[in-house]
Amino acid sequence: MQVVQRRDGGFRSTWAKAGTPHPAVPLFTVVPRRWVVERTFAWLGRCRRLSKDYEYLHVCSENAIYLTMAMLLVRRLARSPR
């Protein structure tokens, strides 16, 4: 598990009067919608070619990711009722 620091420093949507100190930032906060990224990586991990780093060039790996996501999209569109 990796703990990441929020970009806003924990002060998003926080209002304070001028001259008052900022509220304390918690050490750990859940990053919203991070599960979407983790789910996408899980989908990519199912692809045999992307399960390990077989490619020599980064461009080939990127193209393999595009191809895999296109295949997932086509499968999902073919499965959905009209």
Rank of each mutant, 00 (worst) to 15 (best):
R7F: 10
M71C: 07
W15Q: 13
L72C: 13
A16F: 03
G9N: 00
R34G: 05
A70P: 00
M71V: 05
E55K: 02
T68D: 07
K52E: 12
L67P: 00
E55L: 02
R46C: 09
A78S: 10
V30D: 07
L57S: 11
T40I: 12
F28D: 12
V25C: 12
A78Q: 14
V37Q: 06
P32L: 05
R7I: 11
V74S: 01
A64Y: 12
R34C: 04
V59I: 09
V4T: 10
P26F: 00
D8R: 00
T20N: 14
A42K: 06
R76C: 03
V31P: 04
D8C: 09
K17L: 13
H22A: 12
R6E: 11
S80Q: 07
I65W: 09
L73R: 09
P26I: 01
C47H: 13
V4H: 06
R7W: 06
W15P: 00
A78W: 11
W35T: 08
A18N: 14
Q5L: 07
L77F: 05
G45C: 04
R75C: 03
D8S: 04
R79N: 08
R6T: 14
R12T: 02
R6L: 08
N63T: 05
R76L: 01
V4C: 03
P26A: 00
L73T: 10
L77K: 11
F41L: 14
R75K: 09
R79T: 09
H58E: 05
L57T: 13
H22P: 04
